[in-house]
Amino acid sequence: MSLAALTALQTANTLTEEPAYQVELVSQEGGLVTTSAGFAIDTKPCDGAHFDTLFVSAFVGTAVPPSLSRAVGRLAGEARRVGSFCTGAFVLAAAGLLDGRRATTHWRHLHALERTFPQVRVLRDRLYVNDGKVWTAAGMTTGIDMMLALVEADLGEAAARAVAQRMVMERRRPGGGMQVSDLLTLQPKTDRVETVLAFAKKNLKAPLTVAQLAGVAHLSPRQFSRAFNAATGQSPAKVIERLRVEAAHAMIVASRHSLDTIAAETGFADRERMRRAFLRVHGRSPQDLRRTSRELAAA
């Protein structure tokens, strides 16, 4: 997936008269490097290399050889900006490049990054983070989101939008999106429940009563409640609340709308009910999320 993210740069090159990006793959020794998928890719040795932008790919595990952190530290010292995909953040941290900076990594490794490198300001629920000259992505598909943000910083918003369209992306996700979606964690076992969840996500502003959702599933309210609990392990009311919190989270991070407007747009009766739902789901208030987002934007 680290390599897949480079497609955003390759696509951006098709929009400009002269290529905006030239990509080189390097490793400590050069030569063939076996990927986690089992095939090998050819690389150049990093000795003597110089880059405007340096990114460290993801790798299996989180242990960083000292020789690698030293090599990355040297390359980064001469680069205008540096970044990482997924566990590549551990390499940047080992090289001291994340000291005092905000950063993220894949949700499975957030605790390990915090524990191993307490000087790093690890952010949760971030798809990618840009702090000064340093960029870090949570991993997997978020690397593409980060590269689109990089293209926007270099070539403008219109270019980034054109790249996303050519890559057949449904939408460009902001860096402050949640790493784990509630729709993915529910894992419904029936098409009926999946249809109801899709309907609910598109109509969060509506009341979404049990009777309304049961109608979508073509079941009686009693039958629907039993089927929904069996498929998701949660009540319809609890799931709808989590979906509303997820949508409100995205709006708070990506827009300047007031919290009252966001509460109304995502189906909460008022701002206070949204606040209580956030505390139940995330243990933090919408005000705290907005404050953090604004601090990141200012940084």
Rank of each mutant, 00 (worst) to 15 (best):
A237N: 11
A89N: 00
T142W: 04
L97S: 01
A206N: 14
S67E: 15
P19A: 03
R256Q: 15
T43C: 09
G176S: 07
R124L: 07
H257N: 11
R291S: 13
D145F: 08
V82R: 05
A254D: 13
A227F: 06
R80G: 15
K189R: 15
V239M: 08
A297M: 12
Q165T: 14
L75Q: 04
A198V: 13
A227K: 05
P118I: 01
F224W: 01
M147Y: 07
Y21Q: 05
V193P: 04
A230Q: 13
E246Q: 06
R126W: 08
G175R: 00
V60D: 15
L155N: 02
P118D: 01
A138Y: 02
R275F: 00
A158Q: 14
V26W: 00
A269M: 09
L148I: 02
A8N: 03
L110N: 01
T209N: 03
P66F: 05
V60A: 15
P65D: 02
A217I: 02
R192K: 14
R173G: 01
S27R: 07
T190K: 00
K201Y: 12
R280P: 10
G139I: 03
R280F: 04
R102C: 13
G100W: 01
S69L: 05
E241Y: 06
A298V: 09
G177P: 00
S36K: 09
V33H: 02
L183T: 14
G77L: 08
A137R: 01
V196A: 03
A198R: 14
A298F: 11
G96Q: 06
L54N: 03
A206M: 08
R121I: 12
P221T: 02
A254K: 10
G139R: 03
R172Y: 04
V281F: 10
Y128Q: 01
E17V: 12
F85Y: 09
E114I: 00
L32V: 11
M251L: 15
V72Y: 04
A254Q: 09
K44M: 11
A4P: 00
V168W: 09
A153F: 04
L148Y: 06
F51D: 04
Q119G: 15
R115V: 08
